[in-house]
Design a protein around this nucleic acid. Structure first.
Lengths: 194, 194
DNA sequence: TTGACAAAGCTAATGGCATTAGCCATACTC
DNA sequence: GAGTATGGCTAATGCCATTAGCTTTGTCAA
């Protein structure tokens, strides 16, 4: 029995491919093992079960997404360019990697160094875009939450087929980004809430 | 062996409770059967497997959510009251029913009459709120998508623990709703996108 | 009242998956 | 070239969903 040349990285990378093909929820050790031409228990030499495989996939996806957003932001100059770039890149990633994307949203263990770091990096990119609107501190936090909620909500509704009506989805997305842009631009003082 | 007095409704209702307690993804026929004091295969007399149970749960949840939103809207007068009411009710439902809520998002089979009807009812409520802003047609569709994306994104990020930073989440949510309110109020012509 | 039949339970069996234990071959190191 | 850690394997267990087929319970009509 010749060695298959596996490693944690190889296994996780294959898992990412499997997830993209069959969907995150159907990612299975059995499928990964089969694709690698290996018996299921062999995977345990590299990864500590399905739970950890999912966690590793989450870290992989967070990093990938960070790279995608980071390089998208670098291509924009004005604040609204940055926002648009980040939004497009986010949606683009979700489309291109329908299995990796959901992994991104697993509840993150605060003690997990790698996951935490990847999350933080992502957050930094968003903050850097919001800074161009002059937002910082609590304002930036609220804005980030609004942005993430809007983007995540949109792509998951899209993925689940939640947009049934005959109206161009790209256009609706552009609208959503526009809403965020004007909101960030005209950010009003907090007391307006009361 | 005395009869347990089950029915499709009883089974689905128990499933909803189980889902709320252990999470949608851990909803299992075995758990439902145990709670009902019945052997697993007995459930098949009432429900055609886990897949259909999930579908039935989705319909239940869509209807519940519709009722919650509908009665919330009725309590508001102005457009922004309606929006705020709907937003609070949506988030409230997601909090109160953490297992039912995700069921709501299953990909909906367009041939499924009940699910379709429940979705439509929900959509109507949202449209009625947007109508108070003077939005209709394609504008209303874009606005609905933005609203659903924002609400869904927010509550799922919240549920998954995605809001780690020390900033009051209620406040961030109020901000998000405020953003939507001003966007709907000042809805700009479509060509602004270009 | 009784007897037939549908409905609602049950047990047993199958198959997929994850996980653990423990065996054996491979490859690297000294 | 020997020794050992490593990376594969098979076997076994347990949980879950699903199907087949049996038995009991109610119900309804003669």
């Amino acid at each position: 029995m010749p060695r298959a040349g596996l490693s944690r990285e190889v296994v996780v990378a294959e898992a990412a491919r499997v997830a993209d093909e069959v969907g995150y929820e159907r990612l299975t050790l059995a499928a990964v093992a089969e694709r690698l031409g290996v018996a299921v228990p062999s995977l345990y030499k590299h990864v500590d079960g399905l739970g950890e495989l999912r966690r590793d996939l989450a870290v992989l996806a967070l990093r990938d997404l960070g790279v995608a957003l980071g390089s998208a932001v670098d291509r924009g100059d004005d604040a609204d360019d940055g926002l648009r770039a980040i939004a497009e890149a986010y949606r683009g990633y979700a489309h291109a990697h329908p299995g990796r994307y959901p992994a991104t949203l697993r509840a993150v263990d605060p003690h997990d160094h790698d996951a935490d770091e990847a999350s933080r990096a992502l957050l930094q990119i968003v903050f850097s875009v919001l800074a161009r609107y002059g937002l910082s501190g609590d304002e930036a936090i609220d804005a980030t939450r609004a942005l993430r909620a809007a983007l995540h909500g949109f792509v998951t509704l899209e993925a689940v087929g939640g947009f049934g009506l005959p109206r161009d989805v790209d256009r609706s997305f552009a609208r959503l980004v526009q809403i965020l842009d004007t909101a960030f631009r005209d950010w009003s003082p907090e007391r307006m809430l009361l």
